[in-house]
Design a protein around this nucleic acid. Structure first.
Lengths: 143, 143
DNA sequence: TTTTAATCAGACAAAGTTATCTGATTATTA
DNA sequence: TAATAATCAGATAACTTTGTCTGATTAAAA
């Protein structure tokens, strides 16, 4: 199998985009998120717990509790979520798995791949989640 | 964790590049490949077995046997190896894991990501392994 | 012809990821 | 204050990937 982000990270990104598409400050129970995104409830709950520690989301306990974004969506970048869940190995590791791949000891595809990787990193760094509100709503409605 | 290619695929790419860097028609025992690339012997052996079925490498049994490329390196593209081992899911699946991601039902990052993905696919499709002989030799010598 | 050194095949083991379950804790609301 | 509905925490199960082991088969070389 081939993957870019782990399932955890995919679900984390989906959940955060979902919350960003709702009214600001709106508290979402994990039940609701899991239901709307069709992903396992306990799993998404765990993922959001870890994002709470990273300061990206907040949680409210007790009745009518749930999860909500900890900051303004315009302050949350896609890369923040990826970093919190998967880390940045994707952008540091050699794509062919060679040890000590670096400009000094480049693997055969080092330069070509590095270019793509830099662009991907830039995209994730440039984009904040407030930009995706409309697109998320449109996508969610079709699930 | 975050991955692009599976370990199998990484090792497969490494091994094929290694064979392409040797004299044409040269038979490499799995021992030698495993040793030079510092990867598990039985594992690389299994991977090369599967690439034999895909017609990318050939194998010779018995004493002084081993693996060799089944075609001219100029006829083997990086994408052929990736396809044989990992498949093309990477280029078809939604990067956020949304179901039914398509131009009709795009995920929030569909367009931006699609662009990068297309470039990556093109790179793997354009590059044949004969182009990497020098770079592979230089990298191997430093492991 | 016997020994040797390799692939081949399949079972198995270890590790990591994904998913589920259970119970404790917390805070709202009736 | 009691009932309710949510997060939180930790154990465990299922699955996939990665890696190892053993023995059979094959073919070259002594």
């Amino acid at each position: 199998m081939t993957v870019i982000f782990s399932k955890k990270c995919e679900y984390g990104l989906q959940a955060v985009l979902y919350m960003a598409a709702k009214e600001p400050g709106c508290v979402c129970p994990s039940d609701e998120i899991a239901d709307k995104l069709q992903i396992p409830k306990e799993f998404v709950s765990k993922i959001l717990q870890s994002l709470t520690e990273s300061g990206i989301v907040d949680s409210k306990k007790g009745k009518s509790g749930g999860f909500l974004l900890a900051k303004n969506p315009s302050k949350i970048r896609l890369i923040d979520i990826v970093t919190a869940i998967d880390g940045l190995d994707l952008f540091n590791r050699c794509v062919l798995g060679f040890p000590n791949c670096s400009p000094d000891q480049p693997c055969p595809v080092h330069d070509k791949w590095g270019e793509l990787r830099t662009k991907a990193y830039k995209m994730l760094t440039d984009e904040t989640i407030d930009k995706f509100k409309e697109k998320t709503l449109s996508k969610i409605s079709k699930i």
